[in-house]
């Protein structure tokens, strides 16, 4: 595999008074507003990036609270209705010795969302001033968050499938709870938060001389 930069020194487009298209990569003069190759709007840096990150993150956090307090599923068996929250559903699975699945649901619905809140907040906080952290580590954190965030949607889909399948009158009926809506919104908001983050800031805000490349 060729490292494209091996023979070249690393200069950013911004340092050279240029701007790179984030869709197709084409390098263009700074004053150009639209990319002639793919038509995307050009911005050397997204100035509002951090405000957008914080706003979506806050929205995601607000939606995550009721998602955990209210029931995700309402199961009616023999005229008796039980409601289960996200965490309640996980403990049911453990009770039925389905440890692997319990782990998947717990990871997707609790570990990923909370981890994501913490990591995005950490990155956005660091970017508000010059930092001395290893940019590779920060970039890796960001990539993991961006890649894994959408997988939180698993539990919403589980609720949808259970609701469709389990409709047997008195024997058993499953209906969705309001937490399913809140949880789906929380996932969407945090995905938007991660997407608003301009990764080029990680290197821009690095204090001179603290790390190489």
């Amino acid at each position: 595999m060729d490292r494209a930069g091996q023979q070249q020194s690393l200069t950013t487009a911004r340092e050279a008074g240029m701007v790179g298209c984030t869709y197709c990569g084409l390098l263009l003069p700074m004053d150009q507003a639209h990319c002639p190759r793919c038509g995307a709007g050009l911005q050397s840096r997204d100035d509002q990036s951090l405000q957008k990150v914080w706003a979506w993150l806050l929205a995601g956090l607000i939606a995550y609270v009721p998602a955990n307090l209210y029931p995700m599923l309402r199961t009616t068996q023999m005229f008796h209705t039980t409601e289960s929250t996200i965490v309640g559903g996980v403990s049911d699975l453990i009770h039925h010795h389905a440890y692997g699945i319990a782990f998947i649901v717990f990871f997707a619905s609790v570990v990923i969302p909370i981890g994501k809140f913490i990591v995005i907040a950490y990155l956005a906080y660091l970017m508000s001033r010059p930092h001395k952290s290893d940019p590779h580590r920060l970039h890796l954190l960001y990539e993991v968050v961006e890649f894994i965030g959408r997988w939180s949607m698993i539990d919403v889909f589980v609720v949808a499938i259970l609701t469709a399948l389990v409709q047997f009158d008195v024997l058993a009926t499953i209906n969705p709870g309001i937490a399913a809506v809140c949880f789906a919104l929380s996932v969407v908001f945090t995905m938007l938060s991660a997407q608003s983050f301009d990764s080029r800031l990680i290197w821009d805000r690095l204090e001179k001389g603290s790390f190489h490349g």
Binding site: D2, A13, A16, G20, L26, H139, S199, R200, W203
Partner: peptide, 22 residues
């Protein structure tokens, strides 16, 4: 081109762009 993630510029002639570059 410029890297869309970190903004580093590259000159990629066709013989380089036809392979895998990072």
């Amino acid at each position: 081109i410029a890297c869309p993630v970190c903004d580093v510029m590259y000159h990629l002639p066709p013989e380089l762009a036809d392979g895998e570059t990072r």
